[in-house]
Design a protein around this nucleic acid. Sequence first.
RNA 1: CGGGGUAUGGCGCAGCCUGGUAGCGCGCCUGCUUUGGGAGCAGGAAGUCGGGAGUUCGAAUCUCUCUACCCCGACCA
Length: 574
Amino acid sequence: MLATKLFFPTLKEDPAEATLISHKLMIRSGMIRQVASGIYNWLPLGLRVFQKTENIVRQEMNNIGGMEVMMPCVQPIELWEESGRWNDYGPELLRFTDRHNREFCMGPTHEEVVTDIVRKEISSHKELPLTLYQIHTKFRDEIRPRFGVMRGREFTMKDAYSFNLDEASLHESYSDMRNAYINIFNRVGVEFKIVDADSGSIGGSSSEEFNVLADSGENALALSEDGSYAANVELVPTFKLENPPPSPTMEMELIDTPGIYTVAGLEDKIGLPAFQGTKIMLVHAADWTKEKPSLIGLLLRGDRSLNYVKAEGLDEVKVPLTMASREEVTDIVGCPPGSIGPVNLKIPVIGDYEIAGLSDFVCGSNQNDKHYKGVNWGRDCPLPKLADLRNITSGEPSPSGGGNLTVRRGIEVGHIFKLGDKYSQSMNSFVTDDKGEKFPILMGCYGIGIDRVMAACIEQNHDDKGIIWPREVAPFAVTIIPLPLNDSEVMTKAKQLYDSLTAEGIEVLFDDRDLRAGNKFNNCDLLGIPLRIVVSSKSLQQKGLELKERAKDDPEIIPLDNAMNIIKDKLASY
RNA sequence: CGGGGUAUGGCGCAGCCUGGUAGCGCGCCUGCUUUGGGAGCAGGAAGUCGGGAGUUCGAAUCUCUCUACCCCGACCA
């Protein structure tokens, strides 16, 4: 490919709309441009990387016997009513009507449609197991799209679905898929962790997430020292305390705390350590209705954060978890949020296990601008019902016993689920087994966000000059820069090398643009192409070429007559 | 949806407080020089100042309103 023929509008400066490094670099290198919030154009250079990523996924899916299909983006309401998700899925599901006033949605995922295919066409156990997949556009009307294609509304997902007769077969499909994912992410060139995960709105029994480790990640992962335990913090259990709290040493006392409505505020202004404080979150109770709002308080130690998944697991709490509005709190409790506490609170409270260990603690007084200090369970306020409510933090012991946990950030790029018979039951997808009995087909579903993988890959592979693409996803393997353009020997040799590499199936960007060398070098670094070859009159005098790896600082001179082999070796080792 | 912010040539920004001629850098076009890490000089083109309404002799600037985009929170590949 000649650089003069490639449309890749690069930017010297960071675009104003981007904050995340991968987002900035994708725009600056001319890979993508935004069309609307969370919706992007893929320009030629971006699409090259996109298709390479897609093809790695496709190859690995085919390797485990997956069969590619393509299902529609637009899906009818009927299928979603059957599965029950027309109600369960919130405003994230983009719904609309056609000219005949029939209702449709843009598919955020394809369980319903794929189940519909299978229930109509498969009726015997002899036709199982079956794995279907597609690489296709999805639409989720995210509340807040951000970070470029990392969290877009329109995005591309590889979604695979396995259909199995029994648990053993499901498990086999699941572990094949798991291995395929490991191959995929290794080939894409990202460092990742597989963690146990919550199965969320998709439903199903067990699931694992593939997370690319990156500080910018939205997931928090708990990893044990010895590697024996890895889970999304949403899932990591905490336990009842063994020991009773220390004996009280203080009397309960009402103190003035004007303008202080947060634990951080107490810490700043009256020097209270956050772990001596408490906080209470008021959420909608299970029997909450608009007409009759009823709330429940969730009490945590001041320095802890509420775990939403655990909270939603409580019978008393409305799902999805909804924080009470300021008005609801004021109406029901009699004072606005920020000064609420368990002493004489009029609504039920569930406390995190850990609060049982507190004595002489500080809490809100249910009067504005005042807190209690020196509060003790039993004497001043009954100990509430306890449950596991909080997120684990770095340094706590692993549930597996394998040392302490470290919490790290990760970008979720893949998720695999055992769905079981959730969709088969609700959508009536059954097969007859060898004894003539009917069983619901067991399903697994397996997703990879293609766009997200690319962004995550850049998060892990860049420097201050630009992207450093891993070999398999790089838009080109090699750039050739002839210097100067008007030297006929340089051009001849450069062209010969270009032709030889191209003939070997190696993708080369030939920079024939009439630009200064510095422009080309900087562009080349920005685009992140693994190998750069400079053919110059200077190096030709020594019968050599200059070769520089993107990931390394210094170039080397390689002999012209052996250049092909050296380049091929370099690429092979990349 | 709650909170915060931004909107001015293609891109990045200043100007707004204190109303009066729309400016800078990069990019773009022409010419000359230069030519290994985002060149120099000279000349040039390009802006409904996000939309609408209002105040005013006069609005990028003040007021109201709408919209879009970005950031922080609840969602997920």
